[in-house]
Design a binder for these strands. Structure first.
Lengths: 122, 122
DNA sequence: TCCATATTTCCAATATGATGGAAATATGGA
DNA sequence: TCCATATTTCCATCATATTGGAAATATGGA
């Protein structure tokens, strides 16, 4: 992951509303949640929500797909893992026995397995 | 970790200069780096650097200690792990087999072991 | 005490981001 | 075609963050 992308992701998440949205989507998993449903749950105006989803989307943290009249948003778990990995990169210059394995695990999670991939149209 | 603290941390890191500083400190490990040395390495103005260190510090991501004329800054690895853990929390609602262990590991790393603790005056 | 080094604080200018109202677009059903 | 639902786009206002210069503070050594 490049530094610019990491900054975009982190600054996207460094906002109370957007962090809440993202965590809701992380919790919801690959199935995703419709924009309207998010707005209802978080009690936010549609335009504000749309703007925030747009920021998260441009940062690569979430993806969207249309389903009927709704647009379903879901967290991009690979991007999330890449971000965590980026933060752990070169932790303690690789030396200490704790930081290194943590980095490994985060890196491994980059392909989060079928369970964490957004449902494909197949 | 509370949501407010996470937002503060993430927005602190969502800035190119501060992310670079933080990663430099993460790489440097518990020994820390003097403010002046950071300024030299990153070629930043002293006041700008000071402001950025202040933001990171208020977010709890770094700690400082004076040593002679210099002030040494180092990453707070426990805070960093707490942040990663917060992001993983309730991932996929705990169900899928990949996300859950990732959360565990990050949580465990919260006490990053003696190797990753800032040097104490002892 | 006086000076050099190291870092922070103060301040003003500028830039960037957030918010909410209203209108516009897109989809599916009658 | 017409209407209701779902979501986005446009726009202006307001708030917040960033920057750089200059001065202030703190430490250690001569």
């Amino acid at each position: 992951m490049e530094s610019k992308a990491a900054v975009a992701s982190l600054s996207a998440l460094g906002h109370e509303g957007r962090l809440t949205i993202f965590r809701l989507l992380v919790k919801a998993g690959p199935a995703g949640v419709a924009a309207g449903e998010i707005a209802r749950r978080l009690d936010s105006l549609p335009n504000t929500l749309s703007a925030n989803l747009n920021v998260l989307s441009h940062a690569g943290l979430i993806v969207s797909r249309r389903e009927g009249r709704s647009i379903l948003y879901s967290a991009d778990f690979a991007a999330m893992s890449a971000l965590l990995g980026f933060l752990m990169e070169d932790c303690c210059d690789g030396a200490p026995e704790i930081c290194a394995p943590l980095g490994d695990i985060v890196a491994k999670a980059a392909d989060c397995g079928p369970a964490c991939q957004p449902a494909r149209p197949s």
